[in-house]
Amino acid sequence: MQEHPYLFLAVLAAAGVAFCVGPLALARLWTMLFSPARPGPVKNATYECGLEPQSDPWRRFHAGYYVYAIIFLVFDVEAVFLLPFAVAFGGLSVGAFLAMMGFLLLLVEGLVWAWRKGVLQWR
């Protein structure tokens, strides 16, 4: 009798499925026998830090927080450039010094803008 040319595909597919499903089924059997599931409201709670969940995790954050992020960037970028500036201060030309001062002025302008807008006041 002539065997079907694609029979080996079916055999391999069956073996592959058994290879995947077998261990899972064994694990499931083991769980049923020796580790029965015991859920509860506390066990199924969202947080794992010991505190009680207070509200819906998908709550919105106030859009005004962007100003804090921008001011943080002002100081962050300033610090990043000020450190190498301070290290190389002795060997800098007058042009480089003025360029750096101009850069600092730009950042300070941003701070002054935020200050006058009243962002720095905690409300």
Binding site: S35, R38, V42, K43, E48, G50, L51, E52
Partner: peptide, 14 residues
Amino acid sequence: APLVVRLYNQMPEP
């Protein structure tokens, strides 16, 4: 103490 008990409750058996 309540946090410790809650953490214990969230641990799986055994």
